[in-house]
Design a protein around this nucleic acid. Structure first.
Lengths: 304, 304
DNA sequence: TTTATTTACGGCGCCCGTAATTATA
DNA sequence: TATAATTACGGGCGCCGTAAATAAA
């Protein structure tokens, strides 16, 4: 079945005449005749009486409702996708790690909102693994996560490195290690650690570094928001390895100090990636969002 | 858009691979590729990622639901009409005048039921005009009505004469006219008449006969079922002109007598017609019903 | 390298529009 | 007779399958 056959049928049913239908559809009258015939052959039953005012048969009457629904559904689909292509979708979902939600997106989202005031943005803070999962399930349009060797790349993904930043150590101002300007892994291993829960990129990065050096490493406390880290660290002898951006809030806090590792033994910088699918790049809102993200990222990189 | 393009898309979406889809659809793999391309061109947006496991794009995901609904609707329509053509429709509606419902259909319908036990029959007793109206509106599949010069014939109709029968006069046994073996119009005009309401064929036939003779004719009582006629006639000096089949119940009733008009001035026999549309003749239940109706009609004609 | 999709190509078939024919009122 | 739908016919476009090329994993 072709859609123009359906259209011919609907036109005839509505106008009651083949030639009126032909005019409406912008084709010759025999074309209408043949298309109706094809439809009837295809369905194996007569749809129209061929007297003066072409009236519907019982079968035609039954089919009319179906035909109309099919036609409507196609029109709706067509319009929907057209709208999407012109950037008129109404929501855009982002999942990102906490530091991005806290320090990267807030300056960027208002500017995006100016470009697409109609668009509803949904931003969710998640660990990297979870973000990748919801992205795979098609629940979000874009994720911003930590780069990771175990990231299972799909060919239809577009992975854009945004910036990288060093991992540093947060501790209370009166912590025994606070007097050292730089630290060693052995020193870190002496103290209990506050870490992210499983499924967070930073957890995996830290765990791998300790494992690589065969040092004992016992997470004393698992959290899933960086905010909570600061409160805990301030009042204990615990340590936390965090990316620099997560430590911005601690910079001006007298009760906390930030230290780094010896340059020789420092862990690799943590990479921050934006991931979406290739097809979404063609959607204007997504293109705009990515442009803003790139701008913000280059700005962020200046401080590295 | 062609339907097999839709089918290709659904097959790819379901199997995740072009060649699996090709196998399922029974075509070569390039055909699937081209059909998806055509669909994408038509909608102006990419529907599938072309990596290893062909996954849906956002647009494809949106379109999938529409496509599925369209496909289902077509399948349903196709099955529905196929079933109808094989006589599996589930109801058949008849509208007929009262005498037919009372004397003609009762012996016929049980036999029809034997042939199509699944089928639900709906029979409605109506005046001829009303029956024609509901038939035109597509509310019933078949009508059996009185033949009438004013019957507006449509070209897609099949009109089958069933039988004709004389019009006779019903009166109470002790009626002043009961002693005459045959009657004249002038005599009839002396007495009040019980008649059918407007829109009934017999009403029009009787009215025309009186009008043709310039005789006064005042309906004293209007009814719309022949049953009621008998009860009224029995206890009054009213007359009723009724077709012979409507008088069967009065034949063995001592309180009633039936008279006819002089042969020379008798009104035309009333014709009984079955009407349906040409397309319905191809439906097995209707074909069977018409066969039975014809049989019954020839049987009826024997008594004319 | 292997697998998967796209492009190239020859051929068949379908569909279109014009014009002649048939059916209908 | 006039109007409307169907059939006939020539031309072209479109779609198919096979096979080669290209892209991706």
């Amino acid at each position: 079945m072709r859609l123009d056959q359906l259209q011919s049928f609907l036109a005839v049913a509505e106008t009651g005449s083949f030639q009126a239908a032909a005019q409406r559809c912008g084709v010759s009258q025999p074309t209408i005749s043949r298309q109706i015939q094809a439809l009837e052959d295809n369905l194996g039953i007569q749809l129209l009486h061929r007297s003066s005012r072409a009236k519907l048969t019982v079968a035609g009457d039954l089919f009319l409702r179906r035909a109309y629904r099919i036609w409507q559904e196609w029109q709706a689909a067509s319009a929907e996708l057209k709208a999407m292509q012109h950037g008129q979708q109404h929501e855009l979902c982002i999942a990102a790690i906490h530091s991005i939600c806290r320090h990267f997106l807030p300056t960027l989202l208002p500017r995006f909102h100016q470009s697409f005031p109609q668009m509803q943005l949904r931003v969710t803070a998640l660990g990297s693994d979870r973000a990748v999962k919801v992205f795979q399930d098609g629940l979000v349009d874009l994720i911003i996560v930590m780069g990771d060797r175990y990231l299972f790349k799909q060919s239809e993904w577009v992975i854009e490195p945004l910036y990288s930043e060093p991992v540093q150590i947060l501790m209370a101002a009166q912590h025994p290690l606070a007097c050292h300007p730089t630290l060693t892994w052995e020193a870190l291993a002496q103290y209990p650690h506050v870490v992210f829960k499983d499924g967070y990129g930073m957890r995996r990065l830290v765990a791998e570094e300790f494992a690589r050096r065969n040092l004992p490493w016992q997470p004393a406390l698992e959290l899933n928001t960086p905010d909570a880290f600061i409160a805990v660290i301030r009042e204990s002898d615990m340590l936390a390895l965090l990316p620099r951006s997560a430590l911005k809030d601690a910079l001006d806090d007298d009760t906390l100090v930030i230290r780094h590792l010896d340059a020789k033994v420092a862990p690799p910088d943590r990479q921050v990636l934006a991931i979406t699918t290739r097809d979404r790049l063609n959607l204007p809102p997504m293109a705009q969002l990515l442009t803003l993200i790139r701008q913000q990222a280059s700005h962020e990189s200046c401080f590295s």
